[in-house]
Computed example of a mutant assay.
Amino acid sequence: MLPRALRQSVPTLWRGFAAQAEASAPGLIEIREYTLKPEGMGAFMKVSAEYADVRKELLPFLGLFTCDVGSCLHRVTHLYAYDSFEQRDAVRGAAVRDPRWQQFIELSRPHVQYQENKVMLEAQPIYRALQLPPTARFAPPPKRPGKVVYEMRSYQLHPGYGSVPKLVEAFSAGLPAKVKADPEGRLVFFGHTDVGMLNNVVELWRYPSAQACIRARQSARTVPQWRETIAAVTPGVQHFTSAFLHPAPFSPWQ
């Protein structure tokens, strides 16, 4: 007999997830990146839009983004929130068996070159320092005129057990001052890998525009506490990347 979780309907699984995710700490955030065939970008996004409601029904879908600058331009990034690997297995297993999802995979797969994913843990000291809700509960503010940008910042740290805790500790001390100097940005996610390339730290910020992100950078450079934070963490960073992402029209996060 199948485990009880797999005998439940998907809507029931989803309601159970919502209740559990609110209480869970830390949450699991899965980041999936699909590098598409350049000529298939439009077709993939079209079929994704057509099956967006199915994705939202079956999976704990947070957002899907295309890259504007800073990374592969024919790559899509999407995020999901889970409370545990057991819950992830149950939800994804139910989705795989759904005929509608099977049809979406059949239509979208020809446009995909390869897929990557990683599961990340929310950095709880950062969330406490900034009094942030869990990422699964982030609610985008009302959209203003302009093109919303999500900036994804990724730090690859040196190997070793201490790399991530040291960075999280430093950021916990410095981020409140940085955020105070930046009224436009919203920190949506801050976490480190649990499965995937280890010692990888990812920040995801939301800005009302790309220029607002640049203004935030300029403001941060004038904040003494933030300058001290960067000086403290830089020796432990192997490389650092930044990319501007735009949410798809059907993305829950806008």
Rank of each mutant, 00 (worst) to 15 (best):
P3H: 13
T12A: 12
F17M: 09
F17P: 01
F17H: 10
A19Q: 12
Q20F: 04
Q20T: 13
Q20E: 14
A21N: 07
A21C: 04
E22P: 01
A23E: 11
S24C: 14
P26C: 08
I31T: 09
R32G: 06
R32T: 13
E33F: 09
E33M: 11
E33H: 12
E33R: 14
P38Y: 06
M41R: 10
V47W: 00
E50I: 02
A52T: 02
R55H: 12
R55M: 11
K56E: 05
L59Y: 06
F65E: 08
F65I: 01
T66L: 00
C72I: 11
L73F: 05
H74S: 15
H74P: 02
R75A: 10
D83P: 09
D83E: 10
F85A: 15
Q87A: 03
Q87Y: 00
D89W: 08
V91G: 00
R92C: 07
R92T: 13
A94F: 02
E106R: 15
E106H: 08
L107W: 00
L107D: 00
S108Q: 10
Q113W: 04
Q115M: 13
K118V: 07
Q131V: 05
L132R: 02
P134M: 08
T135W: 10
A136S: 14
F138P: 08
F138W: 07
A139H: 11
P140T: 01
P141D: 04
P142L: 01
P142I: 00
P145D: 06
V148E: 13
Y150R: 07
Y150V: 01
H158F: 08
P159F: 10
G162R: 03
G162L: 13
L167W: 01
E169M: 12
A170W: 07
A170P: 03
S172K: 03
A173W: 11
P176E: 15
P176R: 11
V179M: 15
K180R: 15
P183K: 03
V188L: 05
V195G: 07
N200G: 07
V201W: 00
V202D: 03
V202H: 00
V202S: 00
E203P: 06
Y207P: 06
P208C: 08
P208T: 02
S209K: 08
C213M: 15
I214N: 05
Q218G: 03
S219R: 13
R227C: 13
R227F: 01
T229G: 13
A232T: 11
A232N: 06
V237T: 09
V237M: 02
F240L: 14
A243R: 10
F244H: 13
H246I: 07
P247V: 04
P247M: 04
A248F: 02
F250H: 11
S251Y: 03
S251W: 06
